[in-house]
Design a protein around this nucleic acid. Structure first.
Length: 451
DNA sequence: GCATGATCATGC
DNA sequence: GCATGATCATGC
C-alpha cells in the first residue's frame, strides 16, 4: 500500500501529521465508532491506523523506524488563566529491569526508541469521543543539547538504581526531566522482579515530566511566560559527563559558604531589597546567575527552591508546608495516586543558612533533595491514611499531630481560623495541609559540613 | 524549646 | 478573592 507520506523522511511525516492541526479525526475521516472509545491510548492508536495507515506495534524501534521518529499523541488542557499546559506526563517505553542495566546510554531502550519525538498535542475533553478531540500542536521535538546532557544523567541515575538492586526504591523525584513512572496495575500495583535484589519492584516506564512538556508547549507557542525564565546552563560546555547539573549548581554557591546574606549581595554586586519577603529566593537566583524570576532548569524539572534557616542547634526554624487539601476530595483518593504523594515525589533545592553563636545568619550549605521512596511509602503513607480515616469517621478535627509521626503531620493552613472547608459530613472546618516536620528535615540535611 | 494553632505577604 | 509559601504567637 502506498503511504500518503514518505516514511523515510521525518519532514514529510511531520508535514503530513500537521494536516490534522486544529481538526478532529471525525472531520477528516468521517470516522465511525469502531475503535474502543474510552481506553487510554485509544486516540494514539486511531491516529496510527486511520491517519498514518500502519498497524500499532509494540517494537523496540521507533514507530517510524526508517525516519527515526517516535509518535506520541498526548493531551493538553487550558488553565483558568488561559495558559495551555500538558495534562499529564508523557509516558514512553517500559523499562525492562532485567535488560536495561547492561546497556550503555547509546544502546538503552530509551535512546533507541525516543531519540526523536513526533508530538501531537490534542485538547483534552472529559466526555468527548476520541474522534472529536482537536489537535492543537504538532511537531518534531529534538531535545536541545543542554537538555540531553541532563536527560543522559537522569538515565544514569535510574539505571544505577537497578544496578544497585534498588529498582523498588526508584522515585520520580530522583531525576530531573526523564522520570521512571509506574505503569500498569492501577499505577503501582504491577510488580516485576529485578536483577540484583530479591525485592519485587513496581513496573516502570520512562517518561518526560509534565513540566518539561509545559516548556515544549510554551516554546512552540512562543508564550510570554518564557520571558520570566532564564537558564543556569548558558553554554553546553557548562555540563559534561563529569559535571552534572546538580554539581554545577552546588559549585556556584561554593564561594559564598560561610558568608552572610549582606556579604553575598555585596560580593555579587547586585542590589536586592533586604526587607522584601522574597529576598532570599532572589539572592539565590542571583548567585545562580539568573536575572529573571525563574530558573529554566528548575521549571522543567519541577524543582522547588526553598530557603531553610537553621537555629543554632541545627533545627530548621520552620516546618515545610504543602497546599491545603479539600476534605471531600482527599477521601476519594487512593494513597498511591494521592495529591500529597505527588508533592512528595518532587525535587527540592535547599539553600540552607544557619544562625551562628552571635545570632548572625551565614550560608551553610546547598543541596538537592527529594524524599526517599522508603520514607514516602512508610511515614507519609501512615499519616495520609490516618488522615483519611479520621475524616471519614467524622473526626477531621483530630488529625495526625507532629509528635505522632517522625516525618510529617497535619495542621491548619488557611488565611485565618475563618478560612474553612466543608468536610464529608457537612461540617465547616479550618483548612488544613500536610507539613514536613522540622526534625525530619534536620536529619535529612544534617552533615558534618555544617557546624 | 517545641508543638500546635493561627495569620501574614505576595502574586495571580 | 484566593492559593500558596512563609512566618508568628501562645502555652506547655
Amino acid at each position: 500500500m502506498t503511504l500518503p507520506y514518505d516514511d523515510e523522511d521525518p519532514i514529510s511525516i511531520e508535514k503530513y501529521a500537521r494536516t490534522l492541526l486544529n481538526r478532529t479525526l471525525r472531520e477528516v475521516y468521517q470516522a465511525s465508532q469502531t475503535y474502543n472509545m474510552g481506553a487510554r491510548g485509544a486516540l494514539g492508536q486511531a491516529v496510527e491506523k486511520l491517519h498514518f495507515k500502519y498497524q500499532p506495534n509494540n517494537i523496540a524501534a521507533p514507530d517510524f523506524p526508517k525516519a527515526g521518529l517516535e509518535l506520541k499523541v498526548t493531551p493538553i488542557k487550558t488553565l483558568k488563566n488561559g495558559e495551555l499546559v500538558a495534562k499529564e506526563r508523557l509516558v514512553l517505553n517500559i523499562i525492562d529491569f532485567m535488560v536495561e542495566h547492561s546497556k550503555s546510554w547509546e544502546e538503552s531502550s530509551f535512546w533507541q526508541k525516543n531519540k526523536r519525538l513526533l508530538l501531537m498535542f490534542y485538547l483534552h475533553h472529559d466526555n468527548a469521543a476520541i474522534y472529536d478531540l482537536y489537535f492543537r500542536l504538532i511537531g518534531i521535538w529534538d531535545y536541545p543539547e543542554k537538555d540531553l546532557l541532563i536527560i543522559k544523567n537522569d538515565w544514569k541515575i535510574i539505571v544505577n538504581k537497578i544496578r544497585n538492586g534498588e529498582a523498588h526504591l526508584i522515585s520520580e523525584g530522583d531525576t530531573m526531566y526523564l522520570g521512571a513512572c509506574t505503569k500498569g496495575g492501577g499505577h503501582g500495583g504491577d510488580f516485576r522482579s529485578q536483577p540484583f535484589s530479591s525485592e519485587l519492584a513496581k513496573q516502570r516506564a520512562y517518561s518526560l515530566k509534565k513540566k518539561y512538556l509545559d516548556i515544549i508547549i510554551s516554546t512552540w507557542r512562543k508564550d510570554k511566560r518564557l520571558n520570566d525564565i532564564e537558564p543556569i546552563v548558558k553554554n553546553v560546555k557548562d555540563l559534561s559527563n563529569e559535571k552534572s547539573f546538580e554539581q554545577l549548581v552546588i559549585e556556584k554557591f561554593a564561594p559564598y559558604i560561610g558568608k552572610s546574606p549582606t556579604e553575598i549581595t555585596k560580593a555579587l554586586g547586585v542590589k536586592i531589597n533586604p526587607n522584601a519577603k522574597n529576598f532570599f529566593s532572589t539572592l539565590s537566583l542571583r548567585v545562580l546567575g539568573v536575572k529573571t524570576k525563574k530558573v529554566e532548569e528548575f521549571e522543567k524539572a519541577d524543582i522547588t527552591l526553598k530557603t531553610i534557616r537553621l537555629k543554632h542547634n541545627n533545627m530548621p526554624k520552620e516546618d515545610i508546608s504543602f497546599p491545603y487539601f479539600k476534605y471531600k476530595e482527599i477521601v476519594e483518593e487512593t494513597w498511591y495516586e494521592s495529591t500529597f504523594r505527588s508533592y512528595l515525589e518532587k525535587k527540592f533545592f535547599f539553600v540552607i543558612y544557619k544562625f551562628n553563636k552571635k545570632g548572625e545568619l551565614r550560608l551553610a550549605k546547598v543541596m538537592f533533595w527529594n524524599m526517599p521512596a522508603r520514607d514516602i511509602d512508610s511515614y507519609a503513607k501512615l499519616v495520609w491514611e490516618r488522615t483519611v480515616e479520621q475524616i471519614n469517621n467524622n473526626k477531621a478535627g483530630d488529625l495526625p499531630k507532629k509528635r505522632e509521626n517522625y516525618a510529617c503531620h497535619v495542621r491548619p493552613h488557611g488565611r485565618n481560623a475563618k478560612d474553612t472547608d466543608e468536610t464529608p459530613n457537612g461540617v465547616m472546618l479550618v483548612k488544613k495541609s500536610f507539613w514536613l516536620n522540622s526534625k525530619y528535615i534536620r536529619d535529612q540535611i544534617l552533615d558534618k559540613s555544617i557546624d
